[in-house]
Lab assay of single mutants.
Amino acid sequence: KVTYHVPNEEFARKLYKKAVDANLNVEIRVENGQFIIHIE
Rank of each mutant, 00 (worst) to 15 (best):
residue 14 K to L: 11
residue 27 E to R: 07
residue 32 N to G: 06
residue 33 G to S: 02
residue 18 K to D: 12
residue 17 K to F: 09
residue 9 E to L: 10
residue 33 G to T: 02
residue 37 I to G: 00
residue 19 A to G: 03
residue 9 E to R: 02
residue 36 I to T: 05
residue 35 F to V: 09
residue 32 N to F: 11
residue 36 I to P: 00
residue 13 R to L: 12
residue 30 V to M: 11
residue 40 E to S: 14
residue 26 V to K: 00
residue 34 Q to N: 10
residue 21 D to T: 07
residue 29 R to S: 10
residue 29 R to M: 06
residue 3 T to R: 07
residue 23 N to T: 08
residue 33 G to E: 02
residue 21 D to F: 10
residue 29 R to H: 11
residue 38 H to N: 09
residue 35 F to N: 00
residue 2 V to K: 12
residue 17 K to H: 05
residue 2 V to I: 12
residue 23 N to W: 15
residue 10 E to V: 03
residue 32 N to R: 04
residue 16 Y to M: 08
residue 38 H to D: 13
residue 2 V to N: 06
residue 6 V to W: 08
residue 38 H to G: 03
residue 6 V to I: 11
residue 32 N to Q: 04
residue 17 K to R: 07
residue 39 I to M: 03
residue 26 V to I: 05
residue 14 K to G: 03
residue 10 E to T: 03
residue 32 N to C: 14
residue 7 P to C: 15
residue 9 E to F: 11
residue 16 Y to V: 10
residue 11 F to G: 05
residue 23 N to I: 15
residue 32 N to Y: 06
residue 10 E to M: 03
residue 32 N to S: 05
residue 37 I to N: 00
residue 29 R to V: 10
residue 18 K to A: 14
residue 20 V to F: 08
residue 17 K to Y: 06
residue 5 H to M: 13
residue 24 L to G: 01
residue 14 K to I: 12
residue 28 I to V: 06
residue 3 T to F: 07
residue 6 V to A: 10
residue 13 R to S: 03
residue 17 K to Q: 13
residue 22 A to K: 05
residue 10 E to G: 04
residue 31 E to I: 11
residue 2 V to W: 13
residue 7 P to K: 14
residue 24 L to S: 01
residue 31 E to D: 05
residue 13 R to E: 10
residue 17 K to S: 04
residue 7 P to Y: 15
residue 28 I to M: 12
residue 29 R to L: 11
residue 1 K to P: 08
residue 2 V to E: 08
residue 21 D to R: 12
residue 18 K to N: 10
residue 3 T to I: 13
residue 38 H to F: 13
residue 27 E to S: 13
residue 29 R to T: 10
residue 2 V to C: 15
residue 2 V to H: 14
residue 15 L to Q: 02
residue 15 L to P: 01
residue 34 Q to R: 08
residue 2 V to Y: 10
residue 9 E to A: 05
residue 22 A to V: 09
residue 18 K to H: 09
residue 25 N to C: 06
residue 29 R to P: 00
residue 28 I to E: 00
residue 14 K to Y: 13
residue 13 R to F: 09
residue 8 N to I: 08
residue 4 Y to I: 15
residue 38 H to I: 15
residue 1 K to C: 15
residue 35 F to E: 00
residue 3 T to C: 15
residue 13 R to V: 04
residue 10 E to L: 04
residue 15 L to W: 04
residue 27 E to N: 06
residue 3 T to E: 10
residue 1 K to N: 10
residue 3 T to D: 08
residue 34 Q to C: 15
residue 8 N to S: 10
residue 28 I to G: 00
residue 26 V to L: 02
residue 36 I to E: 03
residue 7 P to T: 15
residue 38 H to M: 15
residue 16 Y to D: 04
residue 39 I to A: 01
residue 30 V to G: 02
residue 24 L to W: 08
residue 37 I to W: 01
residue 16 Y to W: 06
residue 30 V to T: 04
residue 36 I to D: 01
residue 31 E to L: 09
residue 24 L to I: 05
residue 4 Y to K: 07
residue 11 F to P: 01
residue 30 V to L: 06
residue 12 A to C: 15
residue 5 H to Q: 09
residue 27 E to Q: 09
residue 22 A to E: 05
residue 33 G to Q: 02
residue 20 V to S: 04
residue 30 V to Y: 14
residue 19 A to D: 02
residue 14 K to H: 09
residue 15 L to D: 06
residue 10 E to Y: 05
residue 18 K to Q: 13
residue 24 L to F: 07
